[in-house]
Amino acid sequence: MSNRQYIQGGIGLSEDDIQQGKVFFAEDSLNCRYAWDMGVAIERYLRELKNGRIIAKSCNECRRIMVPPRMFCELCFRPSDDWVFVQDTGVVNTFSICYVNWDASRIKPGETPHLPAVIEIDGASKGMGIMHRLGEVDPKDIKIGMRVKAVWKPAEERTGAITDIKYFKPYQEV
């Protein structure tokens, strides 16, 4: 007895079938446009990024300093409490060296790979990380546990976006 008889359908097409028009297909391209409101907490987060600072919010019940800031603590399920500035330095919790772009296309030959990382921000609760990118570093020198510092865009170029921080670069405390 075998399950083979209960597997049916799933007729595979090849690239040729499509490209040479051996099968019909319909194409469409949706252009979805949105205008997202930032909300109470992220509005302030972005405003401070524009000022070259990172702001967090505390929960006085679980005593977390949360970044990105949020208007309610999702653990205690109560309104969060105080606005707290945190550092623009941190520690690399994990990283990757990416040769694929967001749409799965490949970076061009010679182009620097994307260097995403989770960075635990100094002054926030332990383990509170944000995703960002690393820069000014040879990919082979990146280590988990490495200290990094934000490299900001010049003030006049900041728009109130997470990309107001260009990237984080290795940093030695003096």
Binding site: I7, Q8, G9, G10, I11, G12, L13
Partner: peptide
């Protein structure tokens, strides 16, 4: 069904 990269 069979799993395929692109099904008809």
């Amino acid at each position: 069904t069979k799993f395929v990269r692109r099904a008809l």
